[in-house]
Computed example of a mutant assay.
Amino acid sequence: MFPKTDTVLTRVETPAQTGTRSYLFDFNKGDFVVRDGKLVECDGMDALKVWIEKILKTEKGRYRIYDGTGYGCQLEDLIIGNTYTLEFTEAELKREVEEAILKNPLVISVSNFTLTKTANALTIQIEVKTNDTAGDIITVTI
């Protein structure tokens, strides 16, 4: 009844294609941005920035909802209570960040990785290139 074929088609859909919505999130307050009693929608680079900050702040393997998806980034083992050299830590952080961000089908490349560590925070600054942009600078503090 069904034709026999060896071809497997895969389609990756973006939020615009699936009709899903993205909402602005204030990571400093830990809550969605609300105006006039409604969540503020975002699209394009704003939605990508929210997605990037969320994936970098979500520790891979911590939440069951993401089991089997590979969603998140393993940063805690690299920055909390380790005795790794600074060079190794920076190289692994860069690899983890790039690997996580490149999972988004809209992202073409990640470059210009800058890491700033203070006593209680880690700030990662990257340049992200998409089909629509030449390269936007995104800063995430963890």
Score class of each variant (00 low, 15 high):
I108C: 05
L122M: 09
D31C: 09
K54W: 14
T10Q: 13
Y23N: 14
L39E: 10
I79F: 13
E87K: 05
I137A: 14
T141A: 05
I126G: 09
A134F: 08
S109I: 00
E59Y: 07
T114L: 10
V140K: 12
D46R: 13
T116Q: 10
R95W: 11
L86W: 11
K4T: 08
T130G: 04
L56I: 12
M1D: 08
L24Q: 13
D43I: 00
A16D: 07
N104S: 04
D6Q: 07
R95A: 09
N112L: 04
P105T: 02
S109T: 04
A47C: 03
A121T: 04
Y71Q: 01
E87S: 13
F88L: 09
G37I: 05
V33S: 15
K29H: 11
I124D: 12
I65C: 01
F32C: 13
I124Q: 14
G81V: 00
G72D: 03
V140S: 04
C73T: 14
G37T: 12
G19M: 09
G30C: 04
I101L: 06
I101W: 06
F27E: 05
V128K: 05
N120S: 07
L9P: 01
A91T: 07
Y71R: 00
C42T: 08
L106H: 03
N82A: 01
I137E: 12
V107M: 02
